[in-house]
């Protein structure tokens, strides 16, 4: 099943539950199993949280687009916050004590662990587009 669904929300932490519900519904409709859906939900939650807390730090909009591309689920989290590329962020080694990735570091670590690819794009008009990609089982 293919198709593209998108929606936008105010950049507010109280929207997280609604955002997760939207992504969960899309992921399941697009063929993700329970395990894949959970991983995507956790990753999207961290991406949105980082955008709200560390990107905007105030009012703004979060746009989410979910689509299936062959055997992959793509979730794009877009905002108009100052550019920040999480894919260039230092990798955390959770087995080493006191690794400090600073603000948002935990979320980025989780996104990396929970997805198969993360693709970052800085649109010319500004803002950020982070696509979280999960390979789906047949």
């Amino acid at each position: 099943m293919t198709g593209k669904r998108s929606q936008q929300w105010q950049a507010d932490l109280t929207m997280l539950s609604e955002i997760r519900s939207f992504v969960e519904g899309c992921a399941k409709t697009l063929g993700a199993n329970d395990h894949e859906t959970l991983d995507v939900l956790l990753a999207v939650n961290e991406a949105v949280t980082n955008s709200i807390l560390h990107g905007y730090g105030g009012a703004g909009l979060i746009r989410i687009e979910v689509r299936r591309d062959a055997g992959q689920l793509h979730v794009c989290v877009a905002d108009d916050a100052p550019p920040f590329d999480p894919t260039s962020h230092t990798t955390v080694d959770v087995n080493r004590p006191l690794d400090d990735c600073g603000k948002g570091g935990m979320g980025i670590h989780m996104m990396r662990e929970l997805t198969d690819e993360m693709v970052y794009h800085a649109p010319e008009a500004g803002g950020n587009e982070l696509t979280l990609i999960k390979f789906l089982e047949d």
Binding site: L53, V92, P97, L98, D99, D100, C101, G102, K103, G104, G105, M106, H109
Partner: peptide
């Protein structure tokens, strides 16, 4: 709570 990863690693440390 905003200090990030290091706050959690103190537990492990």
């Amino acid at each position: 709570p905003e200090a990030g990863w290091a706050t959690l690693k103190t537990v492990g440390n």
